[in-house]
Amino acid sequence: MLASLIFYLFATVLVASAVMVVTARNPVHAVLFLILCFFNASGLFVLMGAEFLAFILMIVYVGAVAVLFLFVVMLLNIDFKSMRQGLRRQLPLGLGVGALLLVELAVMALHWSSDSQAFSALSTVEMVNQATNVDSTRALGRLLYTDYFYPFQVAGLILLVAMIGAIVLTLRDRKRVKRQNAAEQMDRRPEDVVEIRKVKSGEGAL
């Protein structure tokens, strides 16, 4: 009873804040609503017993992604009014695609229960989880380093490529920046750089 009450609380706030993300006029408010959205979603994950996903959602999405969004929104002076132009024109198309996806989901939901084969396969997974009786963080860790070792490693490579890409596309060597080069300083000799002139008094030097 209490669990379902909490579920409905989280779910209502989640949906309401999701709507606000799209409709809020002020982009900073939209990002703050997005953060609220993430918090409620992680609450739902905790209710389902997936505490690791809940914390990842908090740390990665709230801690990194949403804060990055905030920075972008605040630092880049984007004119959001002009981006809203053409909304009227695009609206029917967007609604049409959305409705199509909704119909597809509905059709699939109707057919879901009749499909026993997959259901049994998925429920065995659940039973295995209950039988081993470990918390979800430990279970995920075990899976990642055993059964899913290969995709896990490839994911590491993907992140590396993303990093290389970001550096390649943005790093510029600045020619005019003066850096201290110790070797160059040591190599400097007085006879190369210093010119000694005898200046007669009263005439000045050219």
Partner: peptide, 23 residues
């Protein structure tokens, strides 16, 4: 399917960067 997706992303990400290499 998971290995498929990982390979595809590794390839695509490198290609996106290569396409805009002349930045």
């Amino acid at each position: 399917l998971l290995a498929l997706y990982m390979g595809l992303e590794l390839q695509s990400l490198a290609l996106y960067v290569l396409a805009s290499f002349r930045r």
